[in-house]
Write a protein that binds this DNA or RNA. Structure first.
Lengths: 236, 236
DNA sequence: GCAAAAGTGTTCTCAATACACCCATGC
DNA sequence: GCATGGGTGTATTGAGAACACTTTTGC
């Protein structure tokens, strides 16, 4: 160990893996870079950490500048710092992943950034190590969502159980028994049944539910075991 | 988003939370700083990320320079970057936690660094945000160890089931039924019984076991549920 | 009246828990 | 011979998994 003097400084950035769910599919929001280097290529939304902010703040700033959203679910994932990860200049990047309700973000902003949603099996070519970041984010999301009731963050305030069911099936690329699934989610006491129904995706219509926010906050740590346990868990 | 020009660079460091287990207690290895600022105070072992290395390499370098160990369990925990976390100069620090077999590290090295083992409830005052780092590392260790067979990394090659039992009890600060515990660990098929016994801690002696390395590698992702589930899980 | 999705109950199996006694040995 | 820690078996309970039919309604 040595003193602070003579230590090389480096650029520090954040990158956001922004997940959204629509058309029964989990997607990520990518932008087409409007600046060099790699202009025109696809990448995660990112930005440099400014002198007055910490990484969390930087990630929040970046996220809300792209989506217009504040207070959404945002969690630090991992710091990537291979000396050659950015061929133009040594840059450390701390990746964050965000879960947003796709119905609430401001479309005009994302359009101004040339942002688009991509299904996870249809990703375009990405700059640097951004594909690794997405892979790791997806693994962590799978891991967490199997244990904690986190996926509600991807749904609108009012949602139906079949929607939630589809979300789990999409994330784990599996099929889950409807009856067992319903019983399990309802047994958490996290859901409050509404009186109205969502009628676009079926004739019968599915009841809307809302999150019981208080119970959600208290039970977030609670285990769920929504998913039959050994579903492709990678190391966290 | 902006180009690379005019972006402020900052110092980037790593800090290692090094866990060890002896005297039936989980401990962390701390050093007494031999340089300014904060000379003489206790801190985690750390170092700056060099131009030719990534954070993982830096953490490995720092860890082995203190312990003499290579190839031990080391995992990135979190990046701390509050603008004021280091009052002397803006520094980003990526924290790593390591699990070592306390019998294998080289004592002369740690002594040269004025390093000492501290039980987690007897920590001295630490510089900067190092206490937060330890708290977070402990939470993550608890979380992971409840789900994955990770604690073997803290034990010597040959260990007894009562030792393992004590380790779990120490980490979770709880008591676990001996019979159920034995049944569970043995049912994982991770352990290979040896013919000799450890005789210092009892008259009867306890059989030594070794890890089945192959099975360990294959089953590391496997869930364990060694711990009654809702044991103080904080968000990961 | 039929297609399409929503909603609901029961049985079985297995794993988690609780719990108490015998064993081996050093002193 | 007794104190100390090591080692083992059983009965009960609850949760997860498998599984099929009825309901509603737009067309």
């Amino acid at each position: 160990m040595t003193s602070y003097k003579n230590q090389k400084k480096l650029l520090a950035a954040v990158d956001c893996i922004i997940f959204g769910f629509y058309e029964q599919t989990l997607k990520v929001l990518l932008i087409q870079r409007g600046f060099k280097p790699e202009e025109g290529k696809w990448s995660l939304m990112g930005g440099f950490i400014q002198p007055t902010e910490g990484p969390d703040q930087a990630a929040n700033r970046v996220l809300s500048s792209l989506t217009g959203l504040h207070g959404v679910y945002l969690e630090q994932l991992h710091t990537f710092g291979d000396p050659n990860r950015d061929p133009y200049e040594r840059t450390l990047s701390t990746a964050y992943f965000a879960l947003i309700d796709i119905q609430q973000y401001e479309k005009q902003i994302t359009e101004a950034y040339h942002a688009e949603w991509f299904a996870l099996n249809e990703l375009p070519e990405l700059i640097f190590d951004h594909e690794d970041m997405i892979t790791m984010a997806l693994e962590k999301l799978r891991y967490k969502a199997a244990l904690h009731p986190i996926l509600f963050e991807l749904l609108p305030t009012k949602f139906t159980i079949p929607q939630l069911h589809g979300l789990y099936e999409s994330l784990y690329n599996t099929s889950l028994d409807k009856r067992n699934f319903n019983r399990k989610v309802l047994s958490t006491n996290l859901l409050v049944k509404q009186n109205d129904k969502e009628k676009t995706s079926s004739k019968k219509g599915a009841y809307y539910y809302k999150l019981n926010k208080k119970s959600y906050k208290n039970n977030f740590q609670a285990f769920l075991t929504m998913i039959p346990v050994p579903v492709s868990f990678k190391t966290m």
